[in-house]
Design a protein around this nucleic acid. Sequence first.
DNA 1: TGCAAAAGTGCATGACATGCAAAATTAAGT
DNA 2: ACTTAATTTTGCATGTCATGCACTTTTGCA
Lengths: 240, 240
Amino acid sequence: MHIMTGKDAVGGGLRERKKRATRAALAEAAVRLAAERGADQVTVEAISAAAGVSVRTFFNYFDSRDDAFVVVDADAGERVRQAFLAAPPELPPLEALREALAAELREAERQHELWSLHARVLRSAPHLLVRNLGAQMADESGLAEAIARRIRAGNGPDAAVPSGEDPDREGAPDTATAPPRGDAGRALPGLYPRLLAAVAGTAVRVSVQHWCERADEVSFADVFREVFDLIAAGLPVPAR
Amino acid sequence: MHIMTGKDAVGGGLRERKKRATRAALAEAAVRLAAERGADQVTVEAISAAAGVSVRTFFNYFDSRDDAFVVVDADAGERVRQAFLAAPPELPPLEALREALAAELREAERQHELWSLHARVLRSAPHLLVRNLGAQMADESGLAEAIARRIRAGNGPDAAVPSGEDPDREGAPDTATAPPRGDAGRALPGLYPRLLAAVAGTAVRVSVQHWCERADEVSFADVFREVFDLIAAGLPVPAR
DNA sequence: TGCAAAAGTGCATGACATGCAAAATTAAGT
DNA sequence: ACTTAATTTTGCATGTCATGCACTTTTGCA
C-alpha cells in the first residue's frame, strides 16, 4: 500500500519491527547457547525458551534448526545493492562493488561481539560452516541484477573510462597473466553480471576467512584491499 | 567413519569397491526419486529401499538425508588436484587450474543424464542448492594447498615468467581496472592460494549455472573459456 | 470501539538421526 | 576347509526435528 518495500532495513510498522526483533532474538539466543554449550547440544526448545516464544513459533521464522545459526543479518544484501547502485557512476563495477561491500563490512563490525561468537560456533561445527558459506550467496542473483542495471545505465557516451588517476601500473606481477586469447570482449549476454556478483561474494568470504585466522597480524581492511587488488589484476602469481 | 580417506579413485580391495557401489547406489536412487517425485517427497526409507539396503545403513553413509542429494562425485576434487599439479610447470596457476578443471568437466559429461537430473532437483529445491554450493567448497582448502605447493615448486630461478609468447597485453579492457594502489605485490602469506582456489570454484559454478539455463544457445566450453578470460583480465566491464 | 489481517500457540503426526548390540559378510591366518 | 578377527550391515529404542491444522492473541486501521 504505502511505502511497504518490505525490505527496508529500519521498519516502518510496529508489526514489522516486532517480527524483526523476534527473529533477531531467536538467532542471537541460538548463537549464544551454541557458543557455550556446543552447537549440537542446543535444542529448538532451548532456543525458543531463551527467546521467549514457543517452539512452534521458531519454525515460523526458520525452516530448520540450523538456519538459526547460519543467518546473521537478513537484509545485508539489500543494503549492499543500494550502496552499489548509489556509487559514483564513473567507477567501474568492480570498484563500486568493493566500496559498497567495504562500507557494509565496516558497519557489521559494530556487532563485533556477536560476530565473534558466531565465528567460533561455525569453526567448531564444520557442518554449519558449509551451510553458512552457501547461504552467503543466496541473494547472488539479486546482486547480479543490480550489476546488470548499473552497466546498462552507465554506458551512454563512453563506456567505462574512469578518471585516469593512476595510469602507471608499475606492479611487478604484470608479467604472468597473458591469456592465450585476449578476446574477452565478445561477452555472452548476462554472463558478466553473474560472474562479478559471484566473484565478489567469494572475495568477501575469503577475506573474512583469512582474517579470522590471523586477526592479530593484519587488519581486515588490508586483507580486503589485497584480495580485490589481486582480482582486479587478474590473479597473477604475487611476487615474493 | 564413512569419510573414508579414499584418495584412490579406483579401489583396490573388494571391500572398498562395494562401499563405493553402495554409496553411489544410494546417491543415484535419491536423485532419481527426487527428480520424479519432488525432493521433499522422498523419504530415507524410499531411498534405502531403492538402493537395496536398510534405513540404518543409509545413515552410515550420509550424515543427513539432504547429503544424498548434494554429493555428486566424492573424489572429483582429488582428480582435479592431481591434474593441476601435473600440468606443464610453465603455465601460470590460473591457466593450469583452468585446464585441470576443463578436463574434469569433460570427463563428467559422461554421466550426463544423471547430471541433468541432479541439476533439475537442485533448481526445484533452493534449500538443497544452498547446501550444494557449500559442499563444492568443502575441499577448497585442499586445492589451495596444492596451489601453494605448485607455486613454491615453480619459483626457483625466475619466479613465474612463462614462455614470452604474448608479452603485449593489447586488450582494450586494460583501461578500467587501475586500483587506487597498484601494490598487489606485497602479498599476505597464504592468501593468494586460497583466493585462487575459491575463485576457480566460483568460476566453475557460474559456468555451469549459466550454461544450464541456455544449453541450446552456446556450448559449455565457450562459457567456461569466457569466464576464465574475464577473470584473467581482472573482470573489466565487457564491450558491447 | 469494532473488525479484518497477521502473528503466536498447542497438539498430533510423521520423518529424521544416533547409540547400541546382535547378526552377517569379508579378509585373512593356520 | 576351518577358525578367527575385523568390518559392515541391520533392527530396535529413543529423542529431536519439522509440518499441518485449528485456535487464541495481538496489531493496524476505519
